[in-house]
């Protein structure tokens, strides 16, 4: 954008940004920041921290949609803030920014991700390999059905947007959640994973796939366009097949 155009955009005035301050108990604070052309929600939060509230806690790392650190609730919707343009989400120049839902709040916009990753482990999400450094890397055929089934899921950036979007996670503390189950789905399709059966059993166990209501909020909100719903359906199919046809 040329300087002139940039200046014109800057004349757009100010954004009114309500930001959650505190932990579980807290309140919204309102900040006025300049509206610019091409600014992301993360840019706005950073601007508030730099110029208005140096003690504002929030989390980010890469700023380009790879690391999955900066997810927050923006105007009531869970989003990756670094790739969310203000122009797309602001309503009449107003933004409300809160921490993600369904996770304990540490301070301001930062929430505790530990329960999220604990559920990964509970779903059997830990890779168990059998190869040593003396072995050649496994030759996985990219065209094999299993590899193709895991193609999408392995792109998950662990941002917890789906976890925050899921209503079942909100009302059922035991439910493992879409991210953990999608992780399990990629693992049971990984031919190098030795604990395949254990992962499948845990993903179908208490709080697992059977608790999913197939509401699809996870896939509607996933910033990288993945479908945990599809992975959960895949786990159910695989589990049924394992039960009736024996483990394959």
């Amino acid at each position: 954008m040329s300087d002139a155009a940039s200046d014109a955009a800057n004349k757009g005035g100010e954004l009114t940004v309500r930001v959650w301050r505190g932990a579980e108990v807290g309140a919204f604070a309102t900040y006025l920041v300049p509206a610019r052309a091409n600014q992301t929600v993360l840019d706005v939060v950073t601007e508030i921290q730099r110029y208005h509230a140096p003690d504002l806690a929030y989390r980010f790392a890469c700023r380009v949609g790879v690391c999955g650190s900066c997810a927050m609730t923006v105007n009531g919707v869970p989003r990756w803030t670094c790739r969310t343009h203000v122009s797309r989400v602001a309503k009449a120049g107003a933004l409300t920014v809160e921490p993600l839902r369904n996770l304990p709040r540490i301070r301001d916009l930062a929430c505790d991700m530990a329960p999220f990753f604990d559920k990964w482990k509970a779903a059997g999400g830990r890779f168990e390999g059998g190869a040593t450094r003396a072995d050649l890397p496994a030759a996985v055929d990219p065209a094999s059905p299993k590899r193709r089934a895991a193609d999408a899921g392995i792109e998950c950036i662990n941002c917890a947007v789906c976890h925050a979007a899921c209503d079942v996670v909100a009302w059922d503390a035991e439910y493992l959640g879409p991210a953990a189950l999608l992780r399990a789905w990629t693992l049971v399709n990984d031919e190098r994973h030795l604990a395949r059966r254990a992962t499948l059993d845990r993903a179908m166990g208490p709080g697992g796939c059977a608790s999913c209501h197939t509401q699809g909020s996870c896939m509607a909100h996933c910033p990288v366009g993945l479908s945990p719903t599809e992975g959960i359906a895949g786990l159910k199919r695989m589990s049924l097949a394992a039960m009736f046809l024996g483990d394959r």
């Binding site: 059993d201 166990g205 589990s239 049924l240 039960m243």
Partner: peptide, 12 residues
């Protein structure tokens, strides 16, 4: 595994 059996029984 009870959860899986119940899930399957419910579908069938």
């Amino acid at each position: 595994m009870m959860e899986r059996r119940l899930f399957v029984l419910q579908r069938l």
